[in-house]
C-alpha cells in the first residue's frame, strides 16, 4: 500500500535522510543547550542586581545575542562558511551544518534561559546567600535546579526551531530530510517524496515535543 501511495520513495534513501536529520538535530540541540545556558547565565548574572552585576559584560553579551538572532538563518550559514570549513574541513554534509545550527540556536535559547532564571524565587536566592553559599553553589544548586522545568520547556521550543533550521540547511547541501525533499522531490516533481519527508519531519517534531513535555512535567515538584 505504501508503494502505491509513494511510488517514487526509495526506502533506504529515506532512512538515510531521516538519520541525517536526527543526527543534526540531536547534536545541535546538545550544543545549543550548553552554549545557550552559558550565554543565558551570563546575561542573567551580569544584569543590574545580579550576582556578577557588570554593565559592560551585560552589554557585550546582549548585543552579541541580539545581532546573531537578527541574522536570517540561511544568511548565517553562508557567513559561517569560512569558519565551518576551518572547523569541520568541509562545507557540505550534516556535520558541516552543526556550527551554523548551534550558533543560530544558542542566542535564541539564551534569551529563554534568561527568562527562566528571572523566574527563580528571589527569597530562595537570599536564603542561599544567608547560608554563606558560594556563587558556584548558588548557580549549580539553586538557580539551575529551581529553573529546570522552564529550561527544559525552552530547549524543547528551541529544538523544534532547530529541526526547521536543519531543513533550511538542507537546501544548501547539508543532507537530511529538507535536502531530500528539495533535490529529490521538488526538483524532480516527485511530490510524493516531498509529502513523505514532511510527514517524517512532523513525526520528529512530535517526538521532541513529547519527550520535552514529559521531562519538564516530571521535574516539576512545585
Amino acid at each position: 500500500m505504501l508503494e502505491s501511495l509513494f511510488p517514487n520513495v526509495e526506502m533506504e534513501d529515506m532512512l538515510t535522510a531521516t538519520y541525517e536529520t536526527l543526527y543534526m538535530t540531536i547534536i545541535s540541540v546538545a550544543g545549543t543547550f550548553i552554549l545557550g545556558l552559558m550565554l543565558g547565565l551570563l546575561l542573567y548574572l551580569s544584569s543590574p542586581g545580579g550576582l556578577w552585576q557588570n554593565r559592560t559584560l551585560n552589554m557585550v553579551t546582549a548585543s552579541t545575542v541580539n545581532v546573531l538572532r537578527a541574522i536570517p538563518f540561511i544568511i548565517l550559514i553562508l557567513l559561517l562558511f569560512p569558519f565551518t570549513d576551518f572547523l569541520v574541513g568541509t562545507i557540505r554534509g550534516p556535520k558541516a551544518a552543526l556550527p551554523a545550527l548551534i550558533i543560530g540556536g544558542a542566542p535564541f535559547y539564551a534569551r529563554l534561559v534568561e527568562i527562566a532564571l528571572k523566574e527563580v524565587d528571589k527569597g530562595v536566592l537570599e536564603a542561599a546567600k544567608a547560608m554563606g553559599a558560594k556563587y558556584r553553589s548558588i548557580i549549580f544548586k539553586v538557580l539551575l535546579p529551581e529553573s529546570m522545568p522552564a529550561l527544559i520547556s525552552g530547549i524543547t521550543v528551541t529544538a523544534i526551531a532547530l529541526i526547521g533550521y536543519t531543513a533550511v540547511a538542507g537546501a544548501i547541501g547539508a543532507g537530511g530530510l529538507g535536502d531530500f525533499a528539495y533535490f529529490y522531490g521538488f526538483q524532480r516533481s516527485d511530490w510524493d517524496v516531498v509529502l513523505a519527508c514532511t510527514i517524517l519531519i512532523i513525526l520528529i517534531v512530535f517526538l521532541f515535543q513529547f519527550v520535552g513535555d514529559s521531562l519538564s512535567r516530571r521535574l516539576d515538584r512545585r
Partner: peptide, 22 residues
C-alpha cells in the same frame, strides 16, 4: 570571611524560602 560568618548565623523567613526542587 562574611561567607564563613554567615554559616554561624541561621535565618528563617516569612515565606520559608525552601527549594521546591529538593
Amino acid at each position: 570571611e562574611l561567607r564563613l560568618a554567615r554559616q554561624d548565623i541561621g535565618m528563617i523567613f516569612q515565606h520559608f524560602n525552601l527549594l521546591w526542587s529538593r
